[in-house]
């Protein structure tokens, strides 16, 4: 009944679902607050918004030229970026900073992005700060997006550039141009192949999966916070596999075939 080759995957899935159930039960206790390591880049976002207000420059938010994916296996990063958009709108409303959102080319995600920004300002008690003119759309393709974004930096200035989401070859240009224009770069992506660009070009970086943890922290939603702990359970599962696999390989067993049971 169980497909050959998926036993280990199924075991991981069962472990993750069991951990989810356990921690969701914990969230029912209103006094339960998990300890989560603080991520310095989170403080940098508030600092950057403050810097933007002092310099009378706008805050820029970008989730990538292709950051509005709702049908791919990268959708978790789109959701994470939306959590950050909600957070940055709240901060901009609190500090009184202008927010420019560079939207991805996936038109189907535009209503969600606009709605998130609008509700973020409304929730912070400043619905009038939402300006549709500052929700920018540049058409399809990374080139048009980077041109539009960098032109915006040059014309309107940049105080903080918060870039979180799905990034391809668009991010080196936008991040470096924000730096050249005197902006403070904070950002990260779950696409490990582009993490190098964020590590090189950002003043504060969320390394890979840190974006999920950071999104949970900024959301203050117990379900999202418990997600970090569920992820840790998965990591311990991987550690056990690594240790067992190393020991089995040391005694001469074919670990690769064992992993594909």
């Amino acid at each position: 009944m169980i497909k050959t080759g998926t036993y280990l995957d199924l075991l991981l899935m069962i472990v993750m679902i069991a951990a989810t159930y356990y921690y969701y039960e914990k969230t029912k206790d209103p006094n339960w607050r998990p300890f989560i390591r603080h991520i310095p880049a989170l403080d940098a976002i508030s600092e950057g918004v403050g810097k933007s207000v002092e310099e009378d420059q706008p805050v820029h938010f970008a989730m990538g030229a292709s950051g509005g994916q709702l049908y791919s296996n990268l959708v978790s990063m789109t959701l994470t970026a939306l959590a950050f958009l909600r957070h940055i709108t709240g901060l901009c409303a609190e500090y009184g900073a202008r927010l420019i959102v560079h939207m991805p080319y996936q038109t189907e995600s535009i209503p969600i992005i606009e709605g998130t920004a609008r509700e973020g300002f409304a929730f912070a008690g400043k619905p009038e700060m939402y300006r549709r003119d500052d929700m920018r759309y540049y058409g399809r393709g990374a080139l048009t997006w980077t041109q539009g974004v960098t032109a915006s930096y040059a014309e309107e200035g940049v105080g903080l550039n918060l870039s979180i989401g799905i990034f391809y070859s668009d991010c080196p240009i936008s991040l470096e141009m924000a730096h050249i224009m005197g902006g403070m770069n904070v950002g990260g992506t779950g696409r490990w192949i582009m993490v190098y660009a964020f590590a090189m070009m950002c003043d504060y970086v969320f390394l890979g999966e840190e974006i999920y943890a950071a999104a949970a922290q900024v959301s203050e939603d117990p379900a999202m916070l418990s997600g970090i702990l569920i992820e840790e359970v998965g990591k311990f599962f991987v550690y056990i596999l690594l240790i067992v696999g190393t020991l089995l390989a040391a005694v001469g067993l074919d670990v690769a075939s064992l992993l594909s049971i």
Partner: peptide
């Protein structure tokens, strides 16, 4: 990095 990001994505999926 890929394993950690994949675990994060699984959590969002669940």
């Amino acid at each position: 990095a890929v394993i950690a990001a994949a675990l994060g994505a699984i959590v969002v999926g669940i």
